[in-house]
Amino acid sequence: MTDTQGIDSGAPARPRERPMLDIRRIYAEPAAVELPRGRQILERWPDAEVIEVASHWRIPELHGDETNVKRWVRIKTEALVLGIKKSLTARPNGRSADFIAPSLSNGCAMACAYCYVPRRKGYSNPVTTFVNIEQITGYLARHVQRQGMKLEPNQCDPDAWVYDIGENGDSSVDAAISDNVRDIVELFRDLPTAKASFATKFVNRDLLDWDPQGGTRVRFSLMPERIAKITDIRTSPISERIAAIDDFVAAGYEVHVNFSPVIVVDGWLDEWREMLRQLDAGIGPAAKAQLKAEIIFLTHNEQLHEVNMGWHPKAEDLLWRPELQEAKRSQNGAWNVRYKSSTKRRYLDDLLRVIDEETPYVQVRYAF
Rank of each mutant, 00 (worst) to 15 (best):
Q303L: 12
K328A: 09
I26G: 07
G94I: 09
L319K: 06
A251L: 09
M309Q: 15
F248W: 11
A367N: 12
S342C: 02
A243N: 10
D349R: 11
A31G: 03
G138F: 10
N301Y: 04
L348V: 00
W210A: 09
K292I: 00
I100Y: 14
R226S: 12
A101Q: 08
E316S: 06
P102G: 05
T216R: 03
A250N: 14
A367R: 08
S239L: 07
G122K: 00
P360N: 05
V117I: 14
K201Y: 07
G38C: 11
T299H: 13
R321T: 12
T89G: 03
I165L: 15
R58A: 14
A28M: 07
I23G: 05
Y123F: 14
Q290N: 13
L351N: 05
D183S: 15
D98A: 12
V33L: 13
M223S: 11
R329A: 09
S239W: 01
R71A: 10
S178P: 02
S260C: 09
K314P: 00
R91L: 14
E254I: 12
P322C: 03
K288W: 01
T359I: 10
A367S: 13
D206T: 09
D206K: 09
K76S: 08
P30Y: 09
L35V: 04
P212D: 08
D266C: 04
Q303V: 13
E186V: 04
P60Q: 11
E43L: 08
L318R: 04
Q155F: 07
P46G: 08
Q40S: 14
